[in-house]
């Protein structure tokens, strides 16, 4: 989780990731940030994030992102 927060802070530093639950809905992460984030997460966690996973529910909070990473790691 700490690695994830570090990546998120690197991409968009102006957010408190421990509390924010509307990263996409609140326009903190735009589509370019999401492209960047996906590339970084795939490298860092050795996963493949398929397009079907790029939905608001998965990207709205650090916690939902972490759950997606764990799920995809299990699937690999």
């Amino acid at each position: 989780m700490e690695r994830l927060i570090r990546i998120l802070e690197d991409i968009q530093p102006e957010v408190d990731y421990s509390t924010c639950t509307d990263l996409v809905d609140g326009h903190y992460l735009d589509s370019l940030s999401i492209i960047s984030l996906v590339a970084e997460l795939e490298d860092e966690f050795d996963i493949t994030i398929p397009t079907v996973e790029i939905i608001t529910e998965n990207f709205n909070s650090a916690e939902s992102l972490w759950k997606m990473i764990l799920r995809l790691q299990e699937d690999e």
Binding site: I35, S36, E40, T51
Partner: peptide, 25 residues
């Protein structure tokens, strides 16, 4: 689907290292 295709993902990873988080993607 286009920006997450393999060639463009590679391009993003490569560009981020050289151009940073804003201009990379």
């Amino acid at each position: 689907p286009l920006s997450m295709s393999k060639p463009l993902k590679k391009l993003t990873s490569h560009a981020r290292k050289h151009l940073g988080n804003h201009f990379g993607p």
